[in-house]
Design a protein around this nucleic acid. Sequence first.
DNA 1: TAACCATACGGAGGGTTCCTCCGGTTGGTC
DNA 2: GACCAACCGGAGGAACCCTCCGTATGGTTA
Lengths: 200, 200
Amino acid sequence: MDKDSRPLRADARRNRDSLVAAATAAFTTQGVEASLEDIAAEAGVGIGTLYRHFPTRAVLIEAVYRSELERLCDAADTLLAERAPDEALAEWMQRFVAHVAAKRGMAQALKSAVASGDGSSELFAYAHQRIRTAAGQLLAAASAAGLVRADVEATDLVRAMSGICLGSDLSASTEQARRLVALLMDGLRYSAPASVPVTA
Amino acid sequence: MDKDSRPLRADARRNRDSLVAAATAAFTTQGVEASLEDIAAEAGVGIGTLYRHFPTRAVLIEAVYRSELERLCDAADTLLAERAPDEALAEWMQRFVAHVAAKRGMAQALKSAVASGDGSSELFAYAHQRIRTAAGQLLAAASAAGLVRADVEATDLVRAMSGICLGSDLSASTEQARRLVALLMDGLRYSAPASVPVTA
DNA sequence: TAACCATACGGAGGGTTCCTCCGGTTGGTC
DNA sequence: GACCAACCGGAGGAACCCTCCGTATGGTTA
C-alpha cells in the first residue's frame, strides 16, 4: 500500500518504458507469443530486468494494452487541437478500429487471464470508461460546432464502432471496417444543424 | 490425390487413433498448450510418430476437434435408439453445450490458424452443417412423435444453443448454461400437439 | 561532496519443450 | 518366406522459460 506509492527510481522507470515499447512492437508484429528474451534484448536490458518488472507474460501484455489505450485516448485531445472537430472525430474513429484490429490477440490473452483470477476484468471496465469519455469529448465538440447531429450519445457511438469491429470477423478485412466507419461518420454528419437547421 | 486415398497401414492407423485419444484427454484437462511429448508418451508412441502424423500443433488440434465433432453428432443416432425422441433431444442439447464449453480453447486456436491460410474455415462450415443435420434429425423425430412443437427449424435451434453458449461468457458458468438449455427444451415442449392439440 | 544502502541491473545456468533426422523395424504382398 | 515401401523411435541441437545472486547505481543524508 505504501511501497507502491513511492515512485520508481529513474533508471527503473526508463527501463520499464523501453520494455513496454519493445513489447508493443514485438506483440504487434509477431503476436503475443513473441520471445521475451528478444523483447528484453530489443529494449537493451537484461532478461532479469524484464522479469522483475513483469513477472508473467500476462502482466506485460496488460501493460502494453494499457499504454496503447492511453495513447489512443490521449490522441483525442491532440486531434481536437489540430483540426476541425468533425475531422478529428472521423480520424479518431478510424484509429479506434485499427486499434481494436491490432490488439485482438492481446485482448484474447487478457481475457483468458481473467479466468486465472487477477484483476483484469476491472481493466476492461476501465478501458470502456476511458474510451467512452474520449468519444464523448470528440462528439461534443463536433456537435457544438454544428458539424454532426446532436442526437447521438457517446455510448451509442462506441457500441456502433464495437459492432463494426466484431462484425468484420476476419482481421484481414481492415478495408471493410474502414469503409463502414466512413459510412457511420457520414450518417453522423447527415442531419447536422449546419446543413439542416433544427426546426423543433 | 491418389496417395491420400490409399488406406493407412494397420499400425499407422492404430497409432494415429491412440494419438488423437491422448491429445483429446490432454487438451481438455490442460488446454491446447499441453506438451506434445507428453501426449506421445501417453499414447505409447515416439515423438517422431506424432510429428509424422501431425506436422504442426494446429493439425493435431484440428484432428481432435473433428473426432469430437463426430462423436457428438454420432451420439444423435444412439440416443434416438435408446430413449424417447424428446428425451434424446434434451440430452443431446445438453451435450452440445458441454461440448462447446470444453472445446472453446480449441476453436480459438483453430480460428487463429485460419489467418495462417490453411483450410480451416472450410472446417467450420463442415462442422456447422454436421451439427445442423444432427439437430434436425432429433427435432424431426421428436416433432413427428408429437412431443415438441412443429414450428421450429433446426437452424433456429442451433442458433439458440449457440446464443446460450456465447451469452454465458465465463466458461465457469456451466450450470447456468445447463439451466438455459432446460428452459429452451421446455419451450419446445410447451405447445406440442400431444398436450395442446392443433386447432388451426 | 562523500559515503551509504535500498533499489535495481545483468546474464549465467538448469529445466522444459520443440522439431528434425536417420538407422532400424514391420505390415502387406508376390 | 522374402522383399520393400511404409512406418517407428528417440537422440540431439536449438529455442525459450524463469530463477538466483553478485554487482552497480540513483538518491539521500550528513
